[in-house]
Write a protein that binds this DNA or RNA. Structure first.
Lengths: 245, 245
DNA sequence: CGACGTGTTGATCTCTCTCAATTAGAGTGG
DNA sequence: CCACTCTAATTGAGAGAGATCAACACGTCG
């Protein structure tokens, strides 16, 4: 994958992201140190790593997770293009969670003090950063609500709806109503706090009921109103336009 | 409760908080709009509220929560003195969670654009703010790990240890090894994603086993090593020194 | 071809929930 | 001072959602 200049970053064309002043883009570009690619399943940052750089995800999917010593794993949230990786780590000594590539990914690498430079030289960018972190926290909040208080069926429905919306915003040109869905059932289980077997049974139940279909790594919501009904949703789930870096 | 000037804020004397330059304190003071007190159980911010000001908690306990339409409630995390209330709301249109006073509380009220002023005029304060939000997220991450992957016994043990540590840092002069513990079992249940009844039974089991004791609103860890063993803890759980506002 | 990862399904087990009832303390009004 | 009410804690019994165990199907890949 050849280097892409921030000015020409294809992400900027998406409706999802706020437009930027040219100055901002130049600054971001100046802080960028390079670009790396990783394969699906590889760790971008290990749990407890102390010296990780700052990344942004610019293509592919990833997820943040924690594992207990006996191997039980909880996925905290999923990351899509435009998301930061490793902000939390810059803030304290060690990162208390790992980040793993879900699909093949491309990452932009930033220098260690990028966060501080951003705050110092362009306060509104620092402000955006705060916004982004708050936004990510809101996703984790939702996850906690699901895992703590929703039934298995509701959890699965909520996850499908949420990921569909995020993916649809990221791939507006997705044809025939299907969006990329690179998760295995193990990922779903680990995100929802369920066992693999029960996740499978729940997924099949919803599918047999005609609510959705997953095929060839694509997710189709066949009856999104029925899905929303079984989801016991919270708000309207519509995400506001967000800043990109 | 009479007004307290930021310069004389008793929180600043705590080991827990980083020392501040005088300039910073003056700025904070200039942004402060007043002070209010609320009784235990009252909502500081309602779910979905759009016009809430920004608060900091300066005495007492509070918690962030979400409820589903049918009344199921999930507590996201607990707030102690020094914590922000309502940052997430400033960032998007509506706050997707509520904040409720757990004990009687005193709050400092800040103007709407405080966050931006902080970023604009004192970048390092904005940076601190980012740090604080990232820190709070880390707490929610831990909660999600607990609720998703730990047994009831483990969850209770983890919560007791965590709250004990936070409270102990806040009340370093607590006598005889007990720290304030204003939670009812309903709060514990809602934080851990358990039913009230099962929370009670688990709590009693640990107590009968001699791991802890809760009495008159005070929490004692009688055997913290055994407690840590049953907790399936993640890291050492030691929090770094943090910025105050 | 065999090994492996992923998905699928059935049978059992168990942790946690729900329902129900009791106790204790704090407050309130007569 | 005493009934009355309310909230929080407690305990037992039965029910159920989800976990665990075990097999098998299917595709990919060396």
């Amino acid at each position: 994958m050849k280097e892409v200049s921030c000015k020409d970053c294809p992400l900027r064309t998406l409706q999802l992201f706020m437009p930027h002043a040219d100055d901002d883009v130049v600054l971001i570009q100046s802080l960028k140190r390079g670009q790396v690619g990783l394969g699906a399943g590889q760790d971008i940052i290990h749990e407890g790593q102390t010296d990780a750089p700052l990344y942004t995800l610019w293509s592919g999917w990833a997820f943040r997770y924690k594992t207990l010593t006996d191997g039980r794993r909880q996925i905290l949230n999923f990351l899509l293009p435009g998301d930061f990786i490793g902000v939390q780590q810059k803030m304290s000594d060690a990162l208390s969670h790992g980040v793993q590539a879900l699909s093949d990914v491309q990452l932009c690498v930033f220098s260690r003090d990028t966060l501080w430079q951003l705050h110092r030289t362009m306060p509104h960018m620092g402000f955006n950063l705060t916004w982004l972190i708050a936004q990510e926290q809101s996703l984790v909040d939702d996850g906690l609500l699901s895992v703590g208080r929703r039934s298995a069926e509701e959890r699965v429905a909520v996850l499908l709806i949420l990921l569909f919306k995020r993916a649809a915003a990221m791939f507006p040109d997705a044809g025939a109503g299907g969006v990329p869905f690179p998760l295995t059932q193990q990922h779903v289980a680990d995100a929802l706090g369920l066992s693999l077997v029960h996740t499978n049974k729940t997924l099949r139940k919803l599918e047999r009921r005609g609510l959705h279909r997953i095929e060839n790594g694509l997710l189709f919501l066949k009856d999104s109103t029925a899905l929303a009904r079984t989801a016991a949703l919270y708000g309207d789930g519509k995400p506001p336009q967000r800043p990109l870096v």
